[in-house]
Design a protein around this nucleic acid. Sequence first.
DNA 1: CTATAAGCGAGACGGTACGTCGCGTCTTGTA
DNA 2: TACAAGACGCGACGTACCGTCTCGCTTATAG
Lengths: 199, 199, 199, 199
Amino acid sequence: MSPSRPPNPALRNPESTAKILDAALAMAAESGPAKVSIEGIAERAGVGKRTIYRWWPSKGAVVLDALAQRLEGQQFERLEATPGTDFPAALKGLIKDTWIHALGDSLPVLSWLIGEAQHDPDVALELRNRLIDPARDRVATWIRRAQDEGQVAADVDPYRAVDLVYGQLYYRLLISPGPHNEAFAEDAATLALRGLQPR
Amino acid sequence: MSPSRPPNPALRNPESTAKILDAALAMAAESGPAKVSIEGIAERAGVGKRTIYRWWPSKGAVVLDALAQRLEGQQFERLEATPGTDFPAALKGLIKDTWIHALGDSLPVLSWLIGEAQHDPDVALELRNRLIDPARDRVATWIRRAQDEGQVAADVDPYRAVDLVYGQLYYRLLISPGPHNEAFAEDAATLALRGLQPR
Amino acid sequence: MSPSRPPNPALRNPESTAKILDAALAMAAESGPAKVSIEGIAERAGVGKRTIYRWWPSKGAVVLDALAQRLEGQQFERLEATPGTDFPAALKGLIKDTWIHALGDSLPVLSWLIGEAQHDPDVALELRNRLIDPARDRVATWIRRAQDEGQVAADVDPYRAVDLVYGQLYYRLLISPGPHNEAFAEDAATLALRGLQPR
Amino acid sequence: MSPSRPPNPALRNPESTAKILDAALAMAAESGPAKVSIEGIAERAGVGKRTIYRWWPSKGAVVLDALAQRLEGQQFERLEATPGTDFPAALKGLIKDTWIHALGDSLPVLSWLIGEAQHDPDVALELRNRLIDPARDRVATWIRRAQDEGQVAADVDPYRAVDLVYGQLYYRLLISPGPHNEAFAEDAATLALRGLQPR
DNA sequence: CTATAAGCGAGACGGTACGTCGCGTCTTGTA
DNA sequence: TACAAGACGCGACGTACCGTCTCGCTTATAG
């Protein structure tokens, strides 16, 4: 009478896993993320529903996993390097790299996922752990290095600097009207920089 | 075979309307917004489901209407008056007024609604029309007046200034970790002000 | 606090009445009787639902009324005259007159109405009063006259003789398989006659 | 987009099936067949509506199935044996066996079902296949044997003989006024026999 | 010759039931 | 024991009609 002992990951079928994640992203891309359902994924992937529920707790988790996997391993050169002498240009480049190029077509999936997170605390938690926090950490670290070089005001918490920049982008993505393109990304960087420059 | 021409609003029963909106908010408050359902609202309000569908296209629309009605008519003194000589203090006060006091307990409803808007374009549109845009307009106008008085840098688009401030708040509300309280509101204002002050 | 005093028939609008009955029969003929609804009749007749409910208790009553009115006043020569010397021929003629020619296209409506009567006792009662019993009475009286002339065995209850003949017709109409045409009508008469002839 | 291929009957849960059929008959007996609804059956049987719709196309089909199952396997001794020397007595006994004793309490269900058949062609078809035709076949065969023994006029189609007898019973059950009891059953047999006896 | 009561069209209302969808759990048979 | 397949109990969806109601309007006697 064990409380549904977790399955043994060693026995997991990598083929099914791949088919499920592919199906999830494909359906999100084709019919819009809102049309994604476990039943639909199962049918499209040629997989039993049970197999999905064995490894993921909800459809949000599946889509999140699929998106994370797609983004995973993307390297952002600017994050590897020191910001360099021209911090404003580096920041603008970074935002374009991460927000426009890396995310790009996945933005609808991301915003759907954030929507899902408002309904389901598990998805919210996983979303932060898998996507949000790591990204925040990487950029905050990068900003910390810029502070060490004197390119950014030293009295600003790097994480709050991330909020200042990315808050604008998420705000527009999720709620506020207006275009959501490269020009706006650059503008957001410019505006945030006014408050981040050393005095 | 006309496409079910819309009902005549003059014949709408205000009593039912009130019962429905009340029930929607009450259920959102008691069981969490995610538990709200049209069936539940109908039962609680003592109303036929048809009556709800006659006047609202979705449960998101009902909740939005209810929230908008609750917030409607809330006056924000600071928005009536000129910012005054101490713009930073006025801005901090404004955020506390609008975000902490006025929204306050409704924040879970608001974030659920934004989540819903990611799934349903109709809700997204209505959300902007009813809540987001009017609030942006009010604050942007207020900032414009501050610019006229020389309290805010003249080369900043007032709407972008709103993004800079509120982006941080929404970002934390919806996605990023960390406390979401009066101290954070004040901090967000402080950080944004660094970029808004006249040089 | 009178219990909904009945409406004054003198004030009844004959135009509306006609439109309602016409609409009922037309819809029964076009979409099949099972698709008839009070709402549909009202819309098609350009009449308020209230007007229908004022004068009829149910859709069955409306259709019944419409059918009765259509059949009303149809004269059957054979019922006026004495059966005459050739009772078998007269009976066959009568059945063809009443069942094939008079009812004819209305048979689906009649069978639907009998179906409705199995669900609604009011319709059942009214159906008997308006259609079934008068028809039984007429034919039974006619048979009684044939008995007086020695054309039908005197020891048979005329009403039971009606059952014997029409039972076969209704049975086939409502339940049993097989064609339902003039030939069958004649066959039913022939078979019944075997038991009705005087010994 | 296959048209929802039918479910695999091998996977059908016999327990649910039994609960559904029991609930259908119980509700028909308690509140009258007209009050039967799929929702009611589902609730009473502790079963999802979906499970009912998976296996039956309509509530008529459920009730029909339940009734057929109840009647199924009832053996009528008189149908097993040769009619014997006293055909009139055998026929009267047979009618009492089948109509009064076997059907008995189920007559309201049967008449409701016939009513339903007038509204729904699927029910009509199934009703004939499951109940009407088999019963007609059995009795017709039995009459055929009586004809071989010279107990019934040889020039009568056995199926038409069935019509002659049962037509009266159904006619009274469904439409015509008058008692519907053992005496009437006997009378119907007597009257029909007048036309069936060998000359 | 008005006024007041009725029928009327329109259609919103509280309900009941419909037939469908997707959820998350389960059972069955195969590898 | 994982897996494909898919039936199951369940809850909610959005729709169709039911029979009652409330609104203005017109019509037709009765004061």
